[in-house]
Write a protein that binds this DNA or RNA. Sequence first.
DNA 1: AATTGTCTGTCCGAAAGCGTACATAACTTT
DNA 2: AAAGTTATGTACGCTTTCGGACAGACAATT
Lengths: 243, 243
Amino acid sequence: MNTRHALSQNHLLATLPAEDRERLLTDLELVSMPRGQIIFDSDTQIRHVFFPTTAIVSLLYEMEDGSLLEVAMVGNEGIVGISLFMGGEATVSRAIVQSAGHGYRLNGRSLKSEFHRAGLLQRLLLRYTLTLMTEIAQTLVCNRCHSMEQQLCRWLLLRFDRLPANSLLITQEQIARLLGVRRALISKVVSNLRATGLIKLDRGRIAVLDREGLEAKACECYALIKDRLDLLLPKENVHKSAQ
Amino acid sequence: MNTRHALSQNHLLATLPAEDRERLLTDLELVSMPRGQIIFDSDTQIRHVFFPTTAIVSLLYEMEDGSLLEVAMVGNEGIVGISLFMGGEATVSRAIVQSAGHGYRLNGRSLKSEFHRAGLLQRLLLRYTLTLMTEIAQTLVCNRCHSMEQQLCRWLLLRFDRLPANSLLITQEQIARLLGVRRALISKVVSNLRATGLIKLDRGRIAVLDREGLEAKACECYALIKDRLDLLLPKENVHKSAQ
DNA sequence: AATTGTCTGTCCGAAAGCGTACATAACTTT
DNA sequence: AAAGTTATGTACGCTTTCGGACAGACAATT
């Protein structure tokens, strides 16, 4: 029962009709996802997929100098490991837990078999993949056209959207690494945001004070991505399946 | 017969086993794709997909100021209109023919019905989509880390890979617009490349003189994307189905 | 031959971000 | 309490790119 309730914390699982979820139930394991956990590495076979509930996972690309840049994040709106059903034997990207929490783990065989039933889960997974792609593409053009302040606001908002709390445990150094810029730049931008009263800083913790202010400073990319994510789920189903 | 031969110019169609291709044959129309043709616009229902043979199509995102930035290109290695089978009612992106040529048009219903047979075409399309996503993500991090010269070399090489000829009809102004930078910057970079003897310029036409030189100047992103595209196709099948 | 439009090369000051470095503050360990 | 570690703020000169502008070269038209 408890399990049943928690399943719905992941939007994809929540949207499944009861019968579909029933089939997966025995194979879905609630697991803790500690910060830094490597969900999958590049060029390795993926054995499980993860449906985060409270955890946030970064999808990262490695550069020639070894640094890891974030291309997208996955929280309770999605699934980690799409290449499993998209037919990539292995991925270029890595997935690492950025914000500790929980999620449901499902072995690859079960996912594939459910995927090939061609039911609602398949439709959901394909639509999610398309949404993820849109998010990456939007981030691409955002990088080109918008200031670091705008980009950071977008990034923060996307994080907070996926977090139960309104404070984020991360250092400026880590943000800089994920975004592929220098820490000094993040420090400057983040200090500005604090000075304007939009956020609060506290040694490795960032909290929102004025969400609307943040949205106003962010570029339109945030709204575009968010709209896309909201469109992903057929609204009627979310509640129906939540109980 | 002629048709049969031309079908194989698109790698996805070429890879299909004869029986699958047979089913689609009557619905596949060879069409001319003139430069500037809008394959699909944003927020509109997609009615057809296109398998380019000699044409190159840009996938574009519109910015708030109305400019259109390229997030990826599709040539004979792919298909234009993935959101049709990925379940997006409409896309954020637009698709416009950048390099005139030909391609095969397939109506959405046929594609969907073949997709839902869950045969090789479905596998191919899903893998292609994953590859496209990888290409976008790689471009994202490339934008962040690499110089304009490296990026332009990558871009040129990706274009030439998809072209039958080794010369490209495009002005520096148009390149700048696609990449989201000023024309003056493209002019500078491109002049350098010409001075080094890597390319030849001629008022709206760019030709490669030294491909290896270009590859050497490009960042590793080019090789990564290219490897990914090559991996897409099961090699054995390409020849088998070409005749 | 003259005119007009397009494509290209270049220049300027301004802005954003890099690379590096250093200092302070806070927390942790001893 | 002292020492070490981590997180942060900030400063300096440098490079890349922006934004805007201008002029020359070529092409098409008349």
